[in-house]
Amino acid sequence: MASYNTPFEIHVHGQVSLRGDVTFENIQDALKPLWKYAGARSLTDAAGSFYEDEPGIRFDPTDHILQMCWTVEGDDDFRQALDEMCMNLNEVALTGAAIEVTFYDTEFEDEDEEEDPEAESRDDFVMLFVGPDPAAIMQVQRDLLVQDVISLMERHFDGAELGGVVAAVDQLFSQRFNDLVSSLQLGKPPRGPGGSGGMGHGSGGRKPRHLH
């Protein structure tokens, strides 16, 4: 595609534990939205990243692990491919997993920001979650939130003082899970900067080009 049709470099980063019966063919089917978007005819053709120093997409049949550190050029329509990928990975995942996606605005340069202080990049960051069931997805969401909260609060409090904070987070997730069970459906994760399923432009500077 022409450069004006690909305003983003999109980096997909994550590791998913897979069921023991999952084969390469299953992974190829699950990731079809990604390699089709890249214009490839198979996962093998698309497994290499836009950047040669990145591992790309790798399937370890011995340890049953899918690893992704893969960049592709694209636009906002890539989000649809991500939604389809997550639905497919839910079918083969053994445990819950987080997948980080960074949209890096290739048309915005730091030099432009210095010339025009009002200029804003369209960088975006998305945290996606997959898993075999709602409980597995919520567990990884909970673990990441606890890590973030503890990391933030340890700047001001000793770790031993934060047991109540962790308990409060657990209570919130327990209530959410009970609500989901009652409604018999899994809703989309809430959106918000840095949160579970967050999709929005952040503030305070550009995010790193790649998440390694």
Results as ranks from 00 to 15, higher is better:
residue 2 A to G: 01
residue 4 Y to N: 05
residue 5 N to H: 02
residue 10 I to L: 05
residue 11 H to I: 00
residue 12 V to G: 00
residue 13 H to E: 09
residue 24 F to V: 06
residue 36 K to Q: 08
residue 37 Y to Q: 01
residue 42 S to H: 10
residue 43 L to F: 15
residue 46 A to Q: 06
residue 50 F to H: 12
residue 52 E to A: 03
residue 54 E to W: 00
residue 54 E to Q: 03
residue 56 G to W: 03
residue 59 F to A: 00
residue 59 F to Q: 01
residue 63 D to T: 07
residue 65 I to K: 13
residue 69 C to G: 04
residue 70 W to V: 07
residue 74 G to P: 05
residue 76 D to T: 05
residue 81 A to C: 03
residue 86 C to K: 11
residue 89 L to P: 00
residue 90 N to P: 04
residue 91 E to S: 07
residue 93 A to H: 10
residue 96 G to M: 12
residue 106 T to Y: 02
residue 107 E to I: 04
residue 108 F to M: 14
residue 119 A to Y: 12
residue 121 S to K: 04
residue 125 F to D: 05
residue 131 G to F: 06
residue 132 P to S: 11
residue 140 V to F: 10
residue 147 Q to Y: 12
residue 147 Q to V: 01
residue 152 L to T: 14
residue 155 R to T: 13
residue 160 A to E: 15
residue 161 E to Q: 13
residue 162 L to T: 13
residue 163 G to E: 09
residue 165 V to Q: 14
residue 167 A to K: 07
residue 171 Q to K: 15
residue 174 S to T: 13
residue 175 Q to N: 12
residue 179 D to E: 15
residue 184 L to P: 08
residue 185 Q to G: 08
residue 189 P to W: 12
residue 189 P to L: 09
residue 192 G to C: 06
residue 193 P to D: 12
residue 195 G to D: 01
residue 196 S to F: 01
residue 199 M to T: 03
residue 199 M to E: 05
residue 204 G to P: 02
residue 207 K to C: 01
residue 209 R to I: 01
residue 212 H to V: 05
